[in-house]
């Protein structure tokens, strides 16, 4: 019953579209399939990626009835390779939007798909061979670290003692730390300690407790991800320490953006590394086909500071992240 209803709705939608676009029906007749391959929601950020990919799928399919978007999630690099094989075996792909689990393992399989003439959009993590991709969309991890550091240097007047919590040993983590450290080293600010907390709230809480026990004075703390920042703040509040002027994160997690919007004094800013970049990538890929707007090249999303003034633009209340 339900499917029949849906079928009728689809049919009538097609008729309406058909009559409305009667003149351009010729161009619209061709159907396009865009496959989107992304990591499954295993932590906050990838949860956001899945959310935004599904939102973009709905919006694009509503806006362009001749474009079919297929979103497929994978829980590991091997699973992603298999899902790529399945996708290209069961569909004729006009475009593939992929956020690769790892660069090395996915390069070959994506090249395979590209050899069939599929338009390739790579998101976030680059492939080992950039010549495979037609479009590259990514955030700027170095800027995430550097912009936070610049803000901190200015606010602390170029001196002070800070501690840093880093994530899981990966390129993303290395780049953020590198961008941050490069700027801090130019100033009089001393980094007392840097340790891994694996982008995990619990581990960040524990590590911050230990930092607080170890150092009697800490002017600011930077957790290179907002998930960890929530654990850090809990530890600082519980210890009742007032020497910490700033507790900063990064990534633009919903809860932290809410704090920024509310004008929190300890967390007045964040820096985006938005999971919604997957939506940017899907839209740009769709434009290539629907709008005949050329979209080849590299597109690097900036990491501007999120402040109370612009926080609204980075806030997605419906997103899990």
């Amino acid at each position: 019953m339900k499917t029949r209803k849906k079928g009728t709705a689809l049919l009538s939608a097609a008729i309406i579209v058909g009559t409305l676009t009667g003149a351009t029906a010729q161009a619209q007749d061709k159907e396009f399939t865009i496959a989107v391959s992304i990591p499954a929601a295993t932590h906050g950020w990838t949860g956001g990626v899945v959310f935004h990919a599904q939102e973009a799928e709905k919006q694009i399919e509503a806006a362009y009835p001749n474009i079919d978007v297929i979103v497929s999630t994978a829980s590991s690099a091997t699973a992603q390779v298999s899902s790529l094989e399945d996708l290209s075996a069961t569909n004729t792909l006009d475009a593939l939007v992929i956020l690769p689990f790892t660069s090395e393992e996915l390069t070959g399989p994506v090249e395979q798909v590209a050899s069939n003439g599929t338009f390739i959009t790579v998101v976030d993590r680059g492939l080992s061979d950039p010549s495979i991709q037609d479009l590259y969309v990514a955030g700027d991890n170095i800027a995430v670290g550097a912009n936070t550091a610049e803000w901190l240097v200015e606010k602390l007047g170029g001196e002070g003692e800070i501690v840093v919590l880093r994530g899981i040993p990966t390129v993303i983590d290395d780049e953020r730390i590198q961008g941050f450290r490069d700027v801090i080293d130019q100033s009089g600010i001393e980094i007392l300690d840097i340790q891994y907390a694996n982008w995990n709230q619990d581990e960040a809480f524990t590590l911050m407790q230990d930092y607080l026990a170890k150092y009697p004075n800490i002017d600011a703390v930077w957790a290179n991800d907002d998930d960890m920042l929530l654990g850090v703040i809990e530890a600082v509040d519980q210890a009742g320490r007032t020497d910490i002027k700033y507790a900063l994160g990064g990534n633009g997690m919903k809860q932290v953006i809410e704090m920024v919007m509310a004008g929190d004094e300890r967390t007045p800013i964040s820096t985006p590394y938005p999971p919604s970049m997957i939506a940017s990538a899907i839209y740009m890929t769709a434009a290539q086909f629907a709008g005949q707007a050329p979209m080849r090249g590299s597109f690097k999303l900036d990491a501007p500071l999120i402040t109370p003034e612009n926080a609204e633009q980075f806030y997605f209340p419906g997103s899990p992240f």
Binding site: T42, H43, G44, N200, Q201, D202, G231
Partner: peptide, 11 residues
């Protein structure tokens, strides 16, 4: 303690 559950809780 943190008032939340995440997919990495208790990992």
């Amino acid at each position: 303690r943190l008032g939340a559950a995440t997919p990495t809780t208790g990992q």
